[in-house]
């Protein structure tokens, strides 16, 4: 009996330690980011750093203003949401409610595949197909631009939006829909007036997940956005928060390197805010279901 109790305790302990690996990693990263991100902000000045419009990290008189990166990340993510959410949302409604089973199976497989494609492949295809395409279509000197990054990001966030939305729509009790149909509503009316409102917290979660994926993406946007530290404009070459860190980390030194950590810290704060929003929507969903 005692042995059994001991074994239980040991196993419990092992599982606890394994669980702590995750918590420990988060803590370690957070502490490390704060410790290595703060010195540069202190040296440059918070206002100068966040609101400065010029980034010239290796100039003889270096300037470390990251406002262009912040705005680019916000605009880029917003653009991807504007493009990607309608497509993803309607796809999800179609797949969940209307699609014949065979079509649904094939399309869901395609969505899963899209989710599995590595981001560097998105970047490569964007670089070789989309960049020259935009240059010719809009008759601009160079296609590597904010618009190009937005399109790539919009495609990249589709899988998370579609999958989470489908799960939410599938979970709507069939009785709701049956009742609506029995009252004389058409199927389309039923889906958009009954099913979608019932699933709204799930769909909001999908959108926030999309935002998280878009704002954290580095590799693909680095290959299609041109990376010049300009203030954002649709056909200009731009640099995101993520790509600002990724593109200069390789050879950076001194204050430049510290400033890159500070950019990562700013990005981290953004992600925290998105997670906060996510929790808010998830909680909202639970209360609705009560």
């Amino acid at each position: 009996m005692k042995n059994r109790q001991l074994l239980e305790n040991i196993i419990h302990g092992i599982f606890f330690v394994l669980g702590m690996v995750t918590v420990g990693s988060v803590l370690l990263i957070t502490v490390y980011l704060i410790i290595s991100g703060l010195p540069a902000i202190k040296e440059i000045g918070l206002k100068e750093f966040l609101l400065g419009k010029t980034w010239a990290s290796t100039a003889s008189e270096p300037k470390y203003g990251i406002l262009p990166f912040i705005l680019t990340s916000i605009y880029g993510t917003a653009g991807a949401i504007v493009l990607g959410v309608p497509i993803g949302f309607f796809t999800a409604v179609y797949l969940s409610k209307m699609a014949p089973p065979k079509v649904k199976a094939v399309m869901q497989e395609a969505v899963s595949l899209l989710a599995g494609i590595p981001s560097v492949v998105y970047g490569l295809v964007g670089m070789i197909v989309l960049v020259p395409g935009i240059r010719e279509l809009f008759n601009v000197p160079d296609g590597a631009s904010l618009l190009c990054a937005i399109i790539v990001l919009a495609i990249m966030i589709l899988p998370s939006i579609i999958k989470v939305s489908i799960t939410a729509l599938d979970a709507v009790p069939k009785e709701y829909e049956d009742a609506s149909l029995a009252l004389g509503a058409t199927p389309i009316e039923t889906y958009f007036r009954v099913s979608v409102p019932a699933a709204k917290s799930g769909i909001a979660t999908a959108v926030v997940l999309g935002v998280g994926r878009a704002i954290g993406e580095a590799m693909a946007v680095m290959m299609v956005s041109g990376n010049a530290p300009n203030m954002p404009s649709l056909f200009q070459s731009v640099r995101f928060l993520t790509t600002a860190v990724a593109s200069e980390m390789g050879y950076s030194s001194g204050l430049q390197r510290q400033a890159l950590f500070s950019i990562a810290l700013v990005l981290f704060v953004f992600i925290l805010m998105i997670n906060g929003a996510l929790n808010f929507f998830l909680k909202g969903g639970k209360e609705n279901n009560k």
Binding site: M127, V131, A144, G226
Partner: peptide
């Protein structure tokens, strides 16, 4: 710069794909 790329290969690919680069 209009574009700041992070590798030699990226620069060559981009120039190869744009007659004005």
């Amino acid at each position: 710069y209009r574009q700041e790329l992070t590798s030699t290969g990226d620069v060559i690919t981009t120039v190869a794909g744009n007659p004005n680069a």
